[in-house]
Design a protein around this nucleic acid. Structure first.
Lengths: 243, 243
DNA sequence: CTTAGTTATGCTCAACCTGAGTAGAAATCG
DNA sequence: CGATTTCTACTCAGGTTGAGCATAACTAAG
């Protein structure tokens, strides 16, 4: 039987279908480190564990639309650039039933991250501990500001790990570094964000040179205020720089 | 209502679920260009159009397992390294019903590609025409060996386009270039594969130097046979070179 | 056997990029 | 005003890349 014949004779109700959900990895910078927004599960299974905001995909709803709806309703965030990350389909990833989940990634500027935490959605910021270098991949764990571990629900540790890996991979040739910063920023802030994503320090002068040469940043003419020492120049992201 | 409450009260049968499928992008090199294996649809809808091999995901079947089953049953290929590409979830991507499809990518060495074509699965090799440079992305089209266009079914042109984009992005820092070659190959063959994926020529000496310096290739001592001119040395992929 | 033709391989050289260090500029604090 | 700290620009060595040239290795034609 060919695929065509199979599809033509397929009865939508004849076979049991997996449930389809989306889960959101919402990342920001917290105390100079990568952090994710998590919700605490209050019900069984896995009550008390920490989970990514998620929800089921409607029958007439795009995956992207489902992710935007979850962003709005579960995380209380109005707008963010969501990007599909990976689809997780292990059979036993949820103990109740078969749920296939499409993971999405969004990067929040510091203000949006703080606003989401202060909102009514009972979100917590979990600092990510990434024990591997570069794009090797591997497990990650989540801790509170005090360093206390946060137990993650389901396969959400794997989802977070993949998000960090993807982020590191895109750091050098896309604008992900700017997505975590406010509109105006100093080169030092930009470098700190890159260092937080990489999990490793960067050469200062080489970094500054590269950013200026690539044409990604434009000087605003203004300077930092309120610093104890020489204020740095403020830049903004210049989208006209080619990618 | 929090996510936990929602999930706890969720009745698996209460809401209509999208159907979940996998589609396979099977790529190889054909006459020095990237080519994909396609099936011709014999039934409505979109009868006569060309489609990627695909199939539905079973209720107790991993996404990866479904992709492997389709590879075996629909494409007649025993083994290949499948990698998840992206999940396509437009509401109207299939006119019959809502189908969300997880696309997978596999790279076939020249022999496996030819063997699949010769097998009983009625597959056709479609040369991919990629009108954009680098990782810009955009539409692709498929043509026969003679240059005649092949009309693609559903959103499969988008899936192929994303596969090419992904492949180009991974070319420089992973082993994808070797996956399309036989076990023993010359540096010229390796360079041709890279050029076919990039869609642009490469500097010869710089390419050779880079490949040798990275430790990805190991000389076999043997030489090409049957060439009209000086035979090139045969190399094999050396997995011990770090990534 | 000799020579022309063609590709493989190794070498050099200039241009560019990166990591590292140094020196002066600009601000606050005591 | 001087000490302190960070920002910014500059230089320099080392490594990588693109480009070209010389030689090696092989076949086919004469």
């Amino acid at each position: 039987m060919t695929e065509s014949e199979f599809l033509a004779g397929y009865d939508p109700a004849a076979y049991e279908r997996p449930a389809l959900a989306v889960d959101l990895v919402l990342l920001g910078i917290r105390a100079g480190r990568l952090a994710a927004l998590l919700l605490r599960r209050s019900q069984q299974p896995q009550a008390g564990l920490w989970a990514l905001p998620g929800g089921f995909v409607g029958i007439a709803e795009t995956l992207d639309a489902a992710a935007e709806r979850v962003l709005r309703d579960k995380a209380g965030i109005g707008r963010a650039r969501l990007e599909q990350l990976y689809t997780f389909g292990a059979v036993d990833r949820d103990p109740r039933m078969r749920i296939v989940s499409v993971a999405y990634l969004a990067l929040l500027p510091e203000a949006a991250f703080a606003e989401a935490l202060a909102g009514g959605a009972a979100l917590t910021a979990a600092t990510l501990v990434v024990p591997w270098a570069g794009e090797a991949g591997g497990p990650v764990s989540a801790v509170t500001e005090d360093g206390a571990p946060l137990a993650l629900a389901f396969d959400h540790a794997d989802i977070l790990a993949l998000a960090v890996k993807r982020l590191r991979g895109k750091l050098d040739y896309t604008d992900v570094g700017f997505a975590l910063l406010p509109e105006h920023f100093t080169l030092r802030q930009l470098q700190d964000v890159h260092a937080a994503i990489r999990g490793a320090p960067l050469n200062k002068s080489a970094f500054r040179r590269r950013m200026r040469d690539r044409g990604w940043i434009a000087p605003t003419g203004a300077r930092e205020a309120g610093t104890a020492f020489r204020p740095a120049e403020l830049f903004r992201f210049d989208r006209s720089g080619q990618f």
